[in-house]
Design a protein around this nucleic acid. Structure first.
Lengths: 217, 217
DNA sequence: CCGGATCCGTAACGATACTG
DNA sequence: CAGTATCGTTACGGATCCGG
């Protein structure tokens, strides 16, 4: 609400003054999956229109939530402050899991990356913040990976930037079931619903057993 | 967005389909402080207009987030599912604490109740979920209390419904400083910035020392 | 007076077309 | 590809009016 702000001395109202306009939080959702180009965001949110996206990106940049890197082929990414929105957005996502899926939901918008945002809660970061891991998943025709570093788990689009410690293939249904903890990694392996292309089954199980999604991050 | 939903198969987008319209999350903020009448909500959010509030309340009720109790003098309150929004809203609030307070913020909208929503994170629920406590605060001319029960801390408007275990007076500035952990309860006592009307200083300190606001609930 | 419902001017939005 | 311009439509904000 760039112009029409709530103007209340309340941290929630101030958050919404910055984030409450339509599409804004979904733009941030996209950027939580890694730096993006203008067209990539627009492709994920086609009903927004290029003019809206333009407005929102300017607004988010002036509010210090995103950075725009250099003019030709600009890339947008979250600032450190913007990255802090990961926790609130995931807790909101967890709440939304229980909402009914009615006929107004377009099933073709399903994406493994979006599931990954939640699945990240189920991936266990090693107790010491020193270890770095990269877990790559091929889900249907989508590729994505998780950067495990500094005690955090960051889901990202695309192939891993370096050799992955673990490379797993499965379909979106299995991936979602793992994220929702409807099945355990052991069950997924036994039912041959996942295929391990690099790394070991033990690594796969170990990686997914630690977290607790229901904790709300 | 009752009509214009995002329609994406993503829990965040579905949450925003239900909660993303203007004013909706602030209505829920009010109801997190206890059941409210129509005029009470409107008084806290005057720029909304009665017609919007009416729309939003109907929408929230059909989505199972609030309940409207009986027609003459109706009272609105969160359902069990709506109450689950406490965690997401508080994490968003914590994020918003660091936003700059510019000239568009109306300082007269400051309310102890809104601070209490965050302060609740700083109040320690006893480890066993069996103990019940009521802590009452008189902040300026506002009265509010905290219900500590079932391991949860629920900030509420008005006087305590039963005898409070602890009754404390302070000004809004001190109350806010305690919530933000800018001062410790001991410091507040030593500087005579709080006055204990019922209960002991030890109770006051004990009550406020346990939680950790920065944990994001 | 409270809980709305109706009406209307304004601002935000969505779609498309256009430009550097 | 990354925006900008234009325009019809929708949502919002303020005021007024109505039934209990």
């Amino acid at each position: 609400m760039a112009n029409k702000t709530y103007g209340q001395l309340c941290p929630l109202a101030r958050s919404l003054d910055v984030l409450g306009e339509r599409w804004t939080l979904l733009i941030i959702r996209e950027l939580l999956l890694g730096p993006r180009r203008f067209k990539d965001i627009l492709a994920a949110l086609p009903a927004m229109g290029a003019n809206r996206l333009s407005e929102r990106l300017v607004s988010l940049a002036t509010d210090g939530i995103i950075n725009k890197s250099s003019a030709p082929m600009p890339i947008y990414e979250l600032t450190e402050y913007g990255e802090l929105l990961r926790a609130p957005l995931i807790t909101l996502s967890l709440w939304g899991l229980k909402l009914p899926i009615d006929e107004r939901i377009d099933a073709s918008t399903a994406r493994a990356e979006l599931v990954a945002l939640g699945l990240a809660c189920a991936i266990k970061p090693r107790a010491d913040g020193e270890t770095h891991h990269i877990y790559e998943f091929h889900v249907g025709d989508e590729k994505l990976h998780f950067l495990v570093e500094n005690g955090r788990v960051l889901p990202r689009s695309g192939s891993a930037p370096a050799a992955a410690d673990l490379l797993v293939t499965c379909d979106l249904c299995t991936f979602t079931a793992l994220a929702l903890r409807e099945i355990t990694p052991e069950q997924a392996l036994q039912a041959h619903r996942v295929l391990i292309l690099a790394g070991t089954a033990a690594q796969f199980i170990d990686a997914l057993m630690g977290g607790d999604m229901s904790a709300g991050i």
